[in-house]
């Protein structure tokens, strides 16, 4: 950028939206063992994506170790309140079946669970995993520009 162009631009014009955007997927679930559902996706956080499992933190008492879950992962943030589980055919989300294989306390009112997938579409899951790997790659490349 030339010196003259830099001086003409005001500060707010130099903010680039894409640098502040976060990549995220929202998740809701049904506990197939207990028959209950949990649709408050804002209270569920995805911590780690593994090849055939996922680690999430969520409020206590939604599930226990050994429970079978149906997970629905949204590719676009829902715009309306969710009142029922989307069907596997619904576009805009992927459905995964899994079992809680580990459960740990995570703070006062939350737990951290690992859900091992028992039924899922590999290519759909890989697409999500790769999107986060790609995001990290862009962050690491950005940091490399500055660090020695």
């Amino acid at each position: 950028m030339s010196k003259n162009t830099a001086i003409k631009t005001i500060l707010s014009d130099a903010l680039k939206e894409n640098k502040y955007q976060e990549l995220s997927h929202d998740l809701i679930l049904r506990n197939d063992t207990s028959g209950t559902s949990y649709f408050e996706y804002k209270n569920i956080k995805i911590n780690e994506l593994r090849d055939d499992s996922i680690c999430i933190s969520l409020p206590k008492n939604i599930c226990q170790k050994g429970h079978n879950l149906t997970l629905v992962i949204f590719e676009v943030t829902p715009t309306q309140k969710i009142s029922k589980l989307p069907t596997p055919e619904d576009k805009g989300s992927i459905t995964v079946l899994g079992k809680v294989i580990d459960l740990f306390e995570n703070g006062k009112n939350k737990v951290l669970i690992e859900i091992k997938f028992t039924q899922y579409k590999i290519d759909e899951w890989q697409r999500i995993v790769e999107s986060y790997t790609g995001k990290q790659s862009s962050i690491s490349s950005f940091i490399e520009e500055v660090k020695k």
Partner: peptide
């Protein structure tokens, strides 16, 4: 990327975002 820029002002070497693989 903006969030990761916090380490540019420090001697931290890297920033791993969540969720990670």
């Amino acid at each position: 990327i903006a969030s990761s820029s916090l380490i540019l002002d420090t001697e931290a070497d890297d920033y791993i975002a969540e969720p990670f693989t």
